[in-house]
């Protein structure tokens, strides 16, 4: 009994770590705009898949951890992930019973909103010019990948539980 719980914890932490690594992996410059925001997708999966695991505090802590690795300002990703988790937690019960394509749409909206927040942070802190249009592609890629990611992680989780 205790071992399965430990395994579940490891699996949870492992998926988050993989999400972070996915973000750190560089892509060829042509594909760079298509790279989805992996940690957000993994976090969303856990919000929908498990009742009690993800809290606002955890999203904030995860964001801070990511800030250490890959960010312009300390606190940027913490802000983004906290907002994302808040909205997703609020609609968790509705989202759970949506068919995949509707879930994907919601994920798209969440990720677009996240990009908007990032844009605000970047423009107010670094005085950057507006990003190229391709920069907005990433949320769409994330939404397309969502059904596959969700079923994959769900499948793996149920298999691990069976052991």
């Amino acid at each position: 009994m205790n071992r399965t719980r430990l395994l579940a914890h490891c699996w949870f932490a492992g998926t988050l770590l993989l999400g972070i690594l996915g973000m750190l992996l560089p892509l060829p410059q042509v594909l760079e705009a298509f790279k989805p925001y992996w940690p957000a997708l993994v976090l969303l999966y856990w919000i929908l898949a498990d009742d009690k695991r993800v809290t606002l505090g955890l999203a904030f802590a995860l964001g801070l951890g990511i800030d250490l690795l890959n960010s312009v300002l300390l606190g940027e990703q913490a802000l983004r992930l906290t907002l994302l988790a808040f909205i997703a937690l609020r609609f968790r019960w509705q989202l759970r019973f949506f068919p995949f394509w509707q879930q994907a749409l919601v994920v798209l909206v969440l990720l677009l909103n996240d990009r908007l927040v990032q844009l605000l942070v970047r423009i107010s802190s670094a005085h950057e010019p507006l990003p190229p249009l391709a920069w907005w592609l990433s949320p769409f890629v994330g939404a397309v990948l969502w059904p596959f990611l969700y079923s994959l992680l769900n499948d793996l989780r149920s298999r691990l539980r069976l052991q």
Partner: peptide
């Protein structure tokens, strides 16, 4: 939930300003 959200947001923004 809202209070918590506000708390974390203020914390994050505070960090960004400091940084």
């Amino acid at each position: 939930g809202k209070l918590r959200l506000v708390f974390y947001l203020v914390l994050a923004v505070g960090m960004m300003v400091l940084d």
